[in-house]
C-alpha cells in the first residue's frame, strides 16, 4: 500500500513552508476539490450552482472558494460559470480521494464500522488527521493485514467474532495480543491501565494481554488470563522487575512484559484485610 500523502494543495509559496496549510482553508478547499472531481467523474460539467447544491452551501460561498482555489492554481475559474481542475488541481484531488478511500476502507475492514458511519467518519477524519497519524494508520493497516502473528492468522476475523459476541468473558479468546513491530505503535492505546501503572498493593482484573506469542503463552500458562484478578505487590530496586500476585501465586516479570497486561478497576475495590494498607505503605 502506497504512502498516503497529505501535501499542501497549493503551490508552495516562498513565505510558507511546503507542509503547512492554514487548516480552515485546507479542509473546505479539499472538500471542494473532491466535489469538483466527483462531478466530473459523473460526466457533468462542474458549475458553481451544482457545487453549491452538492455541498449544501450558498453560491457566493462557492464563488469565493473557487477564487481562492484559482489563486492556488488548482482550478480554472476564468469563466465565472464553469469550473475545471488544472493538472495540479487534478493531482491534489486525486490525493484527497485516495485518502478518503483509504480511511473508509480502514474503518470498514479493520474496525468493522458500518458503511454509512465509515463514509461519514472518513470525511471527518481525512481533513483533521496529521500526515504522521495518517501514515501510521496506513502502516498499521498494512501490518494487521499482513498477519503479524504468523501465516494464516486472521486478527480482524477474530475481532469480528469478538464484536459479535458483545462482551469478552474470562476465557475470552479475542484478547490476543499483537506482536510489536513497525507501525504497531498505533495499537498501543490503553485498554484500562497497565499493571505497572497501579500503585503497590492495588489490584484489578485483567482486561487485555498484549505480548509476543511466546511470552503470551507463558503468561496464560501461569494463569494470567483475562478476567483474573491481579495485584501489583511490589517492585524491585530501580522499579524493575515487578512482582504480581494472582490467585495462588506470585509472579515476577520485567516491566517490559508487564506493561502489556492491562487491568480494569474493580467495582468492589481492593482486597479485604491487611492488603488494604498496601497502598499506604508507599
Amino acid at each position: 500500500m502506497a504512502r498516503i500523502e497529505r501535501r499542501p494543495t497549493g503551490r508552495p509559496s516562498p513565505e510558507r513552508s511546503p507542509t503547512e496549510i492554514p487548516p480552515a482553508l485546507s479542509e473546505s478547499l479539499e472538500d471542494y476539490l473532491e466535489v469538483i472531481r466527483g462531478l466530473r467523474a459523473e460526466g457533468r460539467v462542474a458549475r458553481v450552482r451544482d457545487i453549491a447544491a452538492r455541498k449544501g452551501v450558498r453560491m457566493p460561498s462557492v464563488a469565493s472558494a473557487m477564487k481562492r482555489l484559482a489563486d492556488e492554481g488548482l482550478v480554472d475559474y476564468r469563466t465565472r460559470e464553469y469550473v475545471d481542475l488544472t493538472p495540479e488541481g487534478e493531482q491534489a484531488a486525486e490525493r484527497v480521494a485516495q485518502r478518503h478511500a483509504f480511511l473508509k476502507r480502514f474503518l470498514r475492514e479493520v474496525l468493522l464500522v458500518s458503511p454509512a458511519t465509515a463514509e461519514r467518519d472518513a470525511c471527518a477524519l481525512e481533513h483533521s488527521l496529521s500526515p504522521e497519524t495518517l501514515d501510521r494508520i496506513a502502516g498499521f493497516y498494512q501490518y494487521i493485514k499482513g498477519c503479524p502473528r504468523g501465516v494464516g492468522r486472521d486478527i480482524v476475523g477474530e475481532f469480528r467474532d469478538c464484536c459479535a459476541s458483545g462482551e469478552t468473558g474470562p476465557a475470552g479468546e479475542c484478547h490476543h495480543g499483537q506482536a510489536r513491530g513497525p507501525g504497531a505503535a498505533v495499537a498501543d492505546y490503553p485498554c484500562g491501565r497497565s499493571v505497572v501503572e497501579l500503585r503497590e498493593g492495588e489490584g484489578g482484573r485483567i482486561s487485555r494481554l498484549r505480548a509476543v506469542p511466546e511470552i503470551r503463552r507463558r503468561l496464560v500458562e501461569l494463569g494470567l488470563l483475562p478476567g483474573t484478578r491481579v495485584e501489583l505487590e511490589g517492585v524491585a530496586p530501580l522499579g524493575d522487575p515487578v512482582r504480581l500476585r494472582l490467585r495462588g501465586c506470585r509472579l515476577c516479570l520485567r516491566r517490559e512484559e508487564a506493561e502489556g497486561i492491562f487491568v480494569e478497576n474493580e467495582a468492589d475495590g481492593g482486597l479485604d484485610g491487611p492488603a488494604g494498607g498496601g497502598a499506604a505503605r508507599l
Binding site: R229, E233, G234, A236, R245, R250
Partner: peptide, 17 residues
C-alpha cells in the same frame, strides 16, 4: 477475596525495594 499468607508478609520486607 484473597487471603494474605505468611509468605506475603515475609515478602513485604524481604522483597521490598
Amino acid at each position: 477475596p484473597e487471603r494474605e499468607t505468611l509468605s506475603d508478609r515475609i515478602d513485604r520486607v524481604v522483597a521490598h525495594r
